[in-house]
Design a protein around this nucleic acid. Structure first.
Lengths: 106, 106
DNA sequence: CACACATTTCGGAAATTGTCAATATGTAAA
DNA sequence: TTTACATATTGACAATTTCCGAAATGTGTG
């Protein structure tokens, strides 16, 4: 796993994006149940849908969609589409690598 | 010690600034001896002067001066003036806090 | 198929950043 | 004090980023 430190730093240098990452650390505590796709085994383990994040961030859907894309391109989030919804969750692996990179490489 | 994650991320989201931080991890290996102030006990422990960093970064003095200021305001570098020279060195404390913050808070 | 809804993409205005040359400041040496 | 050099600040302009509304795309439902 290699870290693109520039992309990651850019992704982290915005308060809302930083908050999204923190919120997703505790989806049950920060978001309503994700009941969108009842027939699929989609629960909070799969992540949180864009509209829930958008409601909490209080920004336009397009902005939030962009932010999530930025975070995903940096490798900090993973997404999974189920029906109409895209569920985003943290990519803990990258977060761990990032902490390790800062400790050893930077 | 509290971490301003946004300021730090902005400071890190530039290749040259990232390189400066890495270069300063091994001043002896990356820079010539800093002999500017012979009467003072200034060696590489105090850091590396702006012109040495500027030569290595291959950017204008003003740009490098700016970058160093950005890194210092983010708490990632410390500076010490000795005579005509300003010596910059890493602030290991902040780097450690940053790794810790990412591991536990983010 | 046609509709409604979740999300993404596009286009653009405003704000920020990158970078330099020119200028200013601080300090040592002559 | 005059000069020379190291660094910092300022002003300018290009490039990038932020953020929105509008339009486009994808998908389940009637």
């Amino acid at each position: 796993m290699d870290i693109d430190m520039i992309e990651i730093s850019k992704a982290l240098s915005n308060e809302t994006r930083l908050n999204i990452l923190k919120w997703l650390k505790d989806p049950e505590g920060n978001f309503p149940p994700q009941g969108g796709c009842l027939s699929e085994p989609v629960d909070l383990k799969a992540g949180v849908c864009v509209s829930s994040i958008q409601a909490k961030a209080n920004l336009s859907p397009s902005t939030v969609s962009n932010y999530l894309d930025t975070l995903q391109r940096a490798g900090l989030l993973l997404s999974e589409r189920h029906g109409k919804w895209t569920y985003y969750r943290r990519n803990e692996e990258t977060l761990e690598c990032l902490a390790e990179y800062i400790k050893t490489e930077l």
